[in-house]
């Protein structure tokens, strides 16, 4: 779709207004229920285990470029690096996209500064490996084996190299927690990692960890937006089914509504 249609404008309003409404309500004091995500405890537990073993942690964002997904991953990186700063173990961040280098550097520095450990921060732990997918995977494998990683965090968008990354950690006996929006890579992470966050749980973890009211309200708004989508799907399915039997219901009407231009 190169350009919006009137129906798309209406859909955008329908999907985004619950988000804005819930953010406003949350900021005004409403408390929304958030179910426990097992991955959160796993994150804290894994970092603690690495600290006991004295092994470093690796945090990779795979193929994620500068996008909303990167910001969600930075939220988790911030939380992990704060714990690492507290327990004094290094966190290594191999990169594929040089554009995100400055953002990751700022995130780590802020986390260390908050814990009063800025003197321990070493920007050389952020390593740009390669923009090529497989060269990046090769470099990641090398780091994991050489540094004898204790815990590996794989959050973001991944392509075919996901299994190579996960297997590398598995070969050194590292605890691995993954979260990806790349649905076709989820099976690979499930087989190789100790815990996998599916799809939007990755975005939810960031809200869960920071307890930020904006993010919590946004989570609630997203759920309502998904209900809106579900309603549209049900309406469309029922309408199309009835159109097979009753002339009154014109087939393809919803599709035509969405493709009507200005």
């Amino acid at each position: 779709m190169e350009h919006s249609t009137p129906a798309i404008c209406i859909l955008i309003i329908l999907l985004l207004s619950p988000v804005l409404y819930c953010i406003r309500k949350c900021r005004n004091g409403t408390v929304y229920y958030l179910r426990k995500i097992k991955g959160i405890d796993e994150i804290n537990f894994s970092v603690a285990t690495s600290a006991e073993q004295g092994k470093p942690i690796i945090f990779t964002m795979g193929m994620t470029d500068v996008s909303p997904l990167l910001y969600a991953c930075l939220g988790i990186l911030s939380h992990v690096s704060k714990i690492c700063a507290k327990v004094n173990i290094p966190v290594i961040v191999p990169l594929r996209d040089p554009e995100s280098l400055a953002l990751i550097d700022l995130t780590l520095k802020s986390a260390y500064e908050e814990k009063g450990k800025l003197h321990q921060y070493d920007s050389n732990r952020i390593k740009y490996l390669s923009s090529d997918q497989l060269a990046f995977a090769s470099g990641y494998q090398g780091i994991v084996h050489r540094e004898k990683i204790g815990t590996a965090f794989l959050f973001g968008s991944f392509a075919a190299e996901s299994l190579i990354l996960a297997e590398a950690g598995s070969q050194v006996g590292a605890r691995q927690i993954a979260g990806t929006v790349s649905a076709e890579q989820i099976p690979f992470f499930i087989t190789s990692c100790d815990y996998t966050l599916l799809g939007e749980e990755l975005f939810a973890v960031s809200a869960y960890l920071t307890k930020d009211k904006t993010q919590l309200g946004s989570l609630r708004g997203q759920d309502i937006a998904k209900l809106v989508l579900l309603t549209l799907i049900i309406i469309g399915t029922v309408w199309e089914t009835l159109s097979l039997h009753f002339q009154y219901f014109e087939s393809g009407i919803l599709k035509n509504i969405f493709s009507m231009s200005w």
Binding site: V181, E200, Q222, K226
Partner: peptide, 20 residues
């Protein structure tokens, strides 16, 4: 949907952000 909502928050600078 999650990406859309996060994009909106980034656009309107509603997020506190992971860095200062």
């Amino acid at each position: 949907v999650a990406g859309l909502s996060l994009s909106l928050r980034m656009w309107l600078s509603m997020d506190k952000g992971s860095f200062n």
